[in-house]
């Protein structure tokens, strides 16, 4: 699974990359029409959750999928984003639209501080360190009611006071505005990934992933490029955390910073296809409904069934589809595109 982002410079691939941009545009445009068709609030809510997880998995993928480091600590950035924007809103009256940028910046700083000493760690060592960092942040927040005058409220979590329909407060009574907001975020994240793939940053990351020492010998500074990508990924994850906080108007450390959210993000990206633009979106689109179906169908009669399915899907992907579920789709696509070219 180290190589599935390998550079592919065949002519078809170049053609495909064009097609991929088209696919992206078609998907986003198609999604933009969904609220016109779907008026049922629950269905819309479910689709918002799918898009939210797709956005989170895409943010995760930005660094982890391309550098090949498995972070199981990204929930920490999600939590930082949520906490900063909510606290700035409740304490300073700052609009969450601005607050989330501050949350994102703080997450970036945190990411660089954590990343500098840990990027050198290989494979499982990096993963274990990230789990440890995220757990430290979570345990600390859970046990801190008040930090330097800031009411973190510990494990109780933070409540966003209700302001009714107010754009600047990032609060809406209907679901449609939230839908378009998360769709915009997702589109931006996908565009950022697509852009990065073709940018110098992307090439350097791929080189680092392939062979870190060789990349260094060629003058690529691995720490610098991984830090940039890691910071970018942390920033985007934190923005997602702010969205979560505004959408549910409640956050607590257990959910927003817990290991489970980190696993969810990683598993969705990996099953969909890490190191690809559309993989994480596909992963979220497959796995989120599985969880909901399992809940709805058995109503808790078979506890934890959806997680068993996640587990099997993860194992099957690692063993048989190391490039993720997107890979077979891409092959079919390539065939069609290739056939068309001839």
């Amino acid at each position: 699974m180290n190589r599935f982002a390998a550079l592919d410079k065949t002519p078809q691939a170049r053609g495909l990359r064009l097609t991929q941009t088209h696919v992206l545009l078609v998907i986003v445009a198609g999604l933009a029409f969904v609220p016109l068709v779907v008026t049922d609030s629950f269905t819309l809510h479910s689709i918002i959750m799918i898009l939210f997880f797709a956005y989170m998995a895409t943010s995760w993928n930005l660094v982890c999928g391309y550098v090949g480091q498995l972070s199981l600590g990204h929930a920490m950035f999600n939590g930082v984003g949520g906490y900063v924007s909510v606290l700035m809103f409740t304490q300073l009256g700052l609009s969450p639209w601005l607050g989330m940028l501050f949350g994102g910046l703080l997450a970036m700083v945190l990411a660089v501080l954590i990343g500098l000493p840990t990027f050198r760690l290989k494979g499982p060592y990096f993963t274990l360190t990230m789990i440890a960092f995220a757990e430290i942040v979570r345990i600390w927040v859970e046990n801190t009611n008040d930090f330097a005058g800031i009411p973190l409220k510990g494990a109780e979590g933070l409540i966003v006071p209700n302001r009714g329909d107010d754009f600047w407060a990032f609060q809406f009574s209907g679901k449609v505005p939230y839908y378009y907001i998360i769709l915009t975020f997702l589109a931006l994240a996908l565009a950022a990934t697509a852009w990065m793939e073709r940018s110098k940053l992307g090439f350097c990351l791929k080189a680092i992933r392939g062979d870190r020492d060789a990349a260094e010998a060629l003058g690529v500074n691995p720490t610098r490029y991984t830090s940039i990508a890691f910071a970018l990924s942390a920033f985007m994850t934190a923005i997602g955390g702010s969205f979560y906080a505004q959408f549910f108007r409640y956050i607590n450390p257990e959910r927003s910073m817990g290991l489970e959210l980190s696993i969810d993000m990683a598993v969705m990206a990996i099953i969909g296809g890490q190191g690809t633009v559309l993989g994480p979106l596909l992963g979220a689109a497959i796995l989120t409904p599985i969880a909901e179906l399992a809940r709805g169908a058995f109503g808790g009669g078979l506890l934890g069934l959806h997680l068993v399915v996640y587990g099997f899907a993860l194992m099957a992907c690692v063993l048989y589809f190391p490039k993720g579920a997107i890979d077979p789709l891409r092959k079919i696509f390539r065939k069609i595109a290739g056939g068309g070219a001839k």
Binding site: M49, F248, R295, G296
Partner: peptide
């Protein structure tokens, strides 16, 4: 929390 909210939406509207 998020799953609880989603399920609440489901049982109310669906």
């Amino acid at each position: 929390p998020d799953v609880g909210v989603t399920e609440t939406e489901r049982v109310i509207s669906r």
